[in-house]
Design a protein around this nucleic acid. Structure first.
Lengths: 215, 215
DNA sequence: GTTGTATGCAAGTAGACACTTGCTTCAGTG
DNA sequence: CACTGAAGCAAGTGTCTACTTGCATACAAC
């Protein structure tokens, strides 16, 4: 069983290394790279500031490891919801979308900061795209399978469809704080997006009438 | 000479106030609030740093005025493209979307920085949502008119549709730098989004068969 | 010519910043 | 016990930060 990390025999929560990584991510999420000062990170971690430099060498190294860790913890958590062979398309897409949306929404502060830092810290650019790559690829595979089966139009551009759905979810997760009143209710929003999306695909449900538009 | 706008008799490009506002926005777009130091802004504006404080009082005041100015310059530039009475829906929505997308894409650096700063500087939150309010409202009115005319389903949630289209455009404008290869070609992307969106609406073209599902 | 206003320039403030040095404390291991 | 390694602590380093002060200069109006 792969854990992806080297677990020491120490109490993880008490390990200064772990505490610093956790605190660094919190400070970064609150105030960005420049605002996450080494003093503040050390205080939040309840660890001496000197220990920070002994363990990580520099602020830059610490923050890079912190965001990498935060990204790997949620990467590819949604892709499992899309089966190899599509069944109930709306339900399956809905489950995937809900998990993907939730993962972005929970990390929205970090994501926003990474997006604003990507010119000055290219490492965060890589982290960002890697974090979504697996989920988006799974969606692409799923839609491709639908296309192969002839359930959606043959001339449908999957890249456009994927960009539309992932973009909608991304913008909702990021923007809901900014313009509250203009978004659908949080409970039902994702399901409504999926309903619209399925219709955009021109998906012909097997059980329903054969209503393929083109002759 | 009559210019028709509120212009001082000074040469605008040489006016230190104008130069500072312009430089402040540039520095903010490059490095965010903390990275836009007063020294750097003054250097970029080729104006003495002391003049900055004499004219604006503080760095905070300068930056707030700068982002406000940048927002008001592009606010409501797209809403004019949606007529009161819909005609060629795909073309009209396409024109609106293209202009709206372009406005976001050109200011993407500033927008990304504002989004990451909105907890620490609530003023930027207000600027952000105000900048989009008019365009989004115009889209909402347009779709509402379509609904009234019965061209799209009566049970369609316009809030969801608006969120989906604006979200797609926003995510494209912001994300194209981050994950280049996963987006449709820049030339055609917006038109493809619109094509999908129109199909999602279930829009029945007047010239085509009368295919209204529910009577 | 005098006054006022706007700008430049040199210098300086107090605090924050990332990072370092030297020394102490303490737990674990032989 | 002695030794080692990890951590804390106090006190620095030089640089940067927003912002201030005092004074010199230019130019326009009266």
């Amino acid at each position: 069983m792969e854990t992806g990390s080297i677990v020491t025999d120490k109490d993880v929560a008490g390990d200064p290394r772990f505490r610093l990584l956790h605190a660094a991510l919190g400070a970064f999420a609150e105030s960005g790279y420049r605002g996450a000062t080494t003093r503040r990170i050390a205080e939040m971690a309840e660890v001496n500031e000197v220990t920070l430099f002994r363990l990580f060498g520099s602020k830059k190294a610490l923050l890079e490891q912190a965001v990498e860790l935060s990204q790997s913890s949620t990467a590819g958590v949604a892709d499992a919801y899309l089966p190899e062979e599509p069944g109930d398309v709306e339900a399956e897409l809905g489950a995937w979308a809900r998990v993907h949306w939730k993962a972005m929404r929970e990390r929205r502060a970090v994501i926003r900061k990474m997006m604003s830092e990507l010119e000055e810290h290219p490492h965060m650019n890589a982290c960002l795209s890697d974090g979504w790559k697996k989920s988006h690829a799974a969606l692409d595979r799923y839609l491709n399978r639908l296309k192969e089966r002839g359930d959606i139009a043959r001339d449908m551009s999957l890249a456009t469809a994927v960009a539309m759905l992932t973009g909608t979810l991304f913008a909702d997760a990021m923007g809901r704080d900014i313009k509250k009143h203009t978004f659908p209710a949080e409970r039902t929003a994702v399901a409504e997006y999926i309903a619209l999306f399925v219709r955009a695909l021109g998906y012909a449900r097997p059980a329903a009438l054969d209503a393929r538009a083109t002759h």
